[in-house]
Design a protein around this nucleic acid. Sequence first.
DNA 1: CCACCCTGAACTGCATACAGAATTCGCAGT
DNA 2: ACTGCGAATTCTGTATGCAGTTCAGGGTGG
Lengths: 270, 270
Amino acid sequence: MVARPGAQAIVYNYRMSARGVAQQSRFNSRTGKVLLSLRELLLKGKFKPGERVSELQLAALAGASRTPIRQALDRLAHEGLVEETRTGRFLVREFTIADVWDGIEVRGVLEGTAARLAAERLSGPSELEPIRALQLRMDEIRHPTRDSFGAYIDLNESFHSALIDLAKSALLRRSIEHVKTLPFASPSALVFARTKLPNAAEMLVIGREQHHAILEAVERRQGTRAEALAREHAQLSRRNLETALADQAIRDIVPGGKLILPDAALTGTA
Amino acid sequence: MVARPGAQAIVYNYRMSARGVAQQSRFNSRTGKVLLSLRELLLKGKFKPGERVSELQLAALAGASRTPIRQALDRLAHEGLVEETRTGRFLVREFTIADVWDGIEVRGVLEGTAARLAAERLSGPSELEPIRALQLRMDEIRHPTRDSFGAYIDLNESFHSALIDLAKSALLRRSIEHVKTLPFASPSALVFARTKLPNAAEMLVIGREQHHAILEAVERRQGTRAEALAREHAQLSRRNLETALADQAIRDIVPGGKLILPDAALTGTA
DNA sequence: CCACCCTGAACTGCATACAGAATTCGCAGT
DNA sequence: ACTGCGAATTCTGTATGCAGTTCAGGGTGG
């Protein structure tokens, strides 16, 4: 564990919660395994931002040949975690805090669109049943503990995914998935400092209320309202992340936190 | 030329206007060349939607080995023109008309965000000078001819790009580029049936007015207005495309048009 | 006639070899 | 010491071979 002994925080790595993701055939191959482990290494900050990662170096590290390594690097380049130079080398991408805020902003905009389309395209109340079920289960978690917190995050992911389902647009889903490949932009970049658990409880209440409001708006086909609410909902992640990134010790634990360049200001839009 | 002899239309392939794109180092390699030609083949409809494209088949076709082919296919899968099956095969992706509308919708939303951020982040009027220059040159083209039409499209691309610049967000740019990889979503999917040139002239006027309004809003830092205007501006592409796709003959010429499944209804949101 | 299984062909996943380009290091000159 | 140049070295781009898997087609049994 890289977590500093002193940094007491519940950090939920979004990767951990991916249910059986490693069992999907796409990740059974060497390429898939390399992709997963390489992504994890990057997010843990094993490579410094701007540092060069060579194929041979990784091949030795992963015990695979260059072929799958190259493919994995290609995908990571698409995801944005590394960047390819003109000469075909790969560098660890470095992010500014502004990038992080922008990522959340864009995700908010797209999820807002999902909420609006969901409202506009709702064929009937029965379509809401799956997402209502998820909501119910989330509501049952009133006081987050170490264990239930993980479950909450999973449910939160599912809720957001279900909302996107309601938008009935594969293309929109693709776009959202794309921005979420940047770890900070993911709604599961929820990070609560343990010492600020009361704060976390409040956030939970607020988030719950926002979920309710969004669904209400969707159900009533209030597209514009749903959009605005979903946008604002994303800002909640931003506030959480702001708290988290303010503490250098916590920042070092947040997935990808070490890829964020130290920046003087923590202002909203830089 | 695949254009049917009867179909009289000015179709401007967005790929043609990419200034010196083939000279960029990224496209000097076999992989790059294969990527370009393969994409072109796909957009021309040389493969049927849903059809399988094997590496060997393409290797023979392109006169290259499987390695660059595979890499190109991987990228096309990211772009969304082909899809990878669980077992690693690639299929030509097929689109519904709803996909097309959604693509434009999402682009509109993102460009709207770009316009809003441009307004919010504008540091001074001088920042608008480059985009004003582009606008001026576009305004000079009053009556589109075969030649000036191409120039107009180029300027239009540059204008949109400059607007995104003003948003000062690399991440937002990335997202927009990503949705634009679907050819229909590109603003340059402007297609005017020659027989409907008067219509085209009107569209030009409307588009011009919208550009003016957007810049005015940005200059006055009216973020919400700028966003709404830019969104609506994207709907103009949709209307153009709607006209184009309604005619089967023209549809066959539109880049990627053959990848769109024949669909009974041409309604806005399906 | 249909369903199922089995076998063979085709194809992908990965490793590796080779060639050419890029980078780095050292050396010489200033 | 510093700069510029050049050569060795490292690395990427591509081709190709092999192994394991998937897929298709035919044949068999129900």
